[in-house]
Amino acid sequence: MAAAGDSWELEPNWPGLVADRDVVEYDDTKFDDVVIMLEKALSEVSGDGVSMEGSLPDVKFQAEVLKTFARAIEKVGEWDGGVSFVAALKKSHEGLTTVYSEVNEKLAIAVKLIAASAESYKQANTANER
């Protein structure tokens, strides 16, 4: 959906959906294409256990980088600004990691739901062809 002023409109080029005046047809192969694209995106952001740049494992790993940075700041000695900065970075990173984890979970659920919907359309199409 796209914002149109104060309301929302259906995107005219939604993959897999062709709407005529009285008929809506679904191309189940396009649903499969969308599922494949989303699964690939999910694999990239979740990292599939590999710490790829920008993946969840990579974001979590940055906590270790922050620990190293914090130790370096502590070695400086009396520097309240540095200590406050490191505390803010740690808190921000914790928030980012939490949100990023939730986004990964929700994306995985969305992919499963779209895949299940695609399967339902395939079954309906098969039943309607009989």
Rank of each mutant, 00 (worst) to 15 (best):
A72W: 12
A70D: 06
E119M: 05
L107P: 02
F69T: 08
V103R: 04
V103G: 05
G81P: 00
W79V: 05
K67N: 13
Y26I: 02
V34N: 00
G5K: 05
S55I: 02
V65F: 01
G77T: 09
S101G: 15
D20C: 03
N128T: 00
E105F: 11
L42Y: 02
F61D: 12
V35G: 04
I73Q: 07
T29P: 00
K91V: 08
E11L: 09
A124M: 15
M37A: 14
I114R: 00
G16Q: 02
A88P: 03
S120R: 02
I114M: 04
E53Q: 11
A2G: 07
D32W: 04
Q123D: 04
A72K: 03
V50Y: 14
M52D: 07
E25C: 05
Y100T: 12
V50D: 14
V24D: 01
E9I: 15
D48A: 10
K91N: 12
G47N: 13
R21H: 11
L56A: 04
Q62L: 10
V111P: 15
Q123I: 04
E39T: 14
D58E: 03
R71N: 12
P57R: 10
A19T: 01
G81H: 04
V59S: 06
R71G: 08
E129V: 03
P57H: 08
K67E: 08
G95W: 09
S84H: 07
N128M: 12
D80Y: 01
A127V: 09
E94L: 05
K75R: 06
G5Q: 03
N125Y: 00
V35A: 12
T97R: 10
E9V: 15
E39G: 12
I36V: 10
P57A: 04
R21C: 03
D32V: 08
V24Q: 01
G54V: 08
S46W: 08
E25D: 15
A115Q: 14
K91P: 13
G82F: 07
V111T: 08
E64L: 12
D27Q: 08
A124C: 05
T126N: 10
F31E: 06
